[in-house]
Design a protein around this nucleic acid. Structure first.
Lengths: 150, 150
DNA sequence: CTAGATGCAAACACTTTGCACCCTG
DNA sequence: CAGGGTGCAAAGTGTTTGCATCTAG
């Protein structure tokens, strides 16, 4: 996931918004750019903080509204955690496993190892009679860095 | 999961509480009994409503406190959903897959089909360097009943 | 008796909403 | 220059907490 890919994804998102009659305000562009540029699944709070220096008037409500808009369009994956609030993945909106470090709060996408996931989803759907539309697979623990420290 | 099994689990939970210096108040017993007796992963609100007829003075706060106590002791599995609040599994505190119907709100445990899960967890842990302590695997969709209706 | 539990209400954290003003297209 | 967007503050959730009162053991 390098700069070129992020840029094209950014452009695609912005083009899509414009195409469906939405305006590209500076705040909105900044939020989307920030969201797409990071791999760390930021919270609304973190996005807001990151944008504030460059767009000091941006309100938290606007960040929430923008995220909500992208969610509706299926362009962000929301990872809601009861206590810790929600975190957002603007790069890979399809469901995929997440590794959540309970020490540093970092969330990362595994490089590989989730191959059998869709097969398992298929199996569970078949035996339960469920029509499965989405799924979520989270692993909680200590990331390599925090494990070594602790 | 029949009555006898639930009764013994209930007894075990109550005995454990008493053994660690907690009192078995009528409210507390009622909450634990209700939690253990249902397979539908009730919310705090639902537990409270179920108990109210028999123990009319029970407050929501007490239900929250009791659930919290059981959580600390590792005797309930909490399934937190950002918007919809949390649901609790008092029967199987270890992580296992859940099927969540987005139409009726029902949550069920699959009878089988989750066999490969721990292996996948192991794989993801190995390749990422994570020390995985817990995991969560949720499938969202329509249960058989709601699928047929809709 | 006396710690621990209850119940109420106030406090909380995160998110949503209403509305007057603003600015993109 | 019109309609969508913004920012503020107020309202909503679900959950937690402080504290006086009550009660199980």
């Amino acid at each position: 996931m390098h700069d070129a890919a992020n840029t094209s994804r950014l452009d695609a998102l912005l083009a899509g918004l414009k195409a469906s009659g939405h305006r590209l305000t500076p705040q909105r562009v900044a939020i989307v750019r920030e969201l797409v540029s990071r791999a760390d699944h930021p919270s609304v709070e973190q996005l807001h903080a990151a944008i504030l220096p460059d767009y000091p008037t941006t309100s938290l409500a606007t960040v929430y509204k923008t995220i909500h808009l992208l969610k509706e369009r299926g362009e962000v994956l929301e990872l809601g955690f009861g206590e810790l609030g929600s975190r957002y993945d603007g790069r890979r909106p399809e469901p995929h496993p997440h590794l959540i470090c309970t020490a540093c709060g970092g969330i990362t996408d595994p490089d590989e190892g989730g191959e059998g996931l869709s097969e398992m989803v298929r199996q569970l759907a078949a035996q339960s009679g469920f029509d499965v539309k989405a799924h979520r697979f989270d692993l909680f623990g200590l990331c390599a860095r925090c494990r070594d420290k602790g």
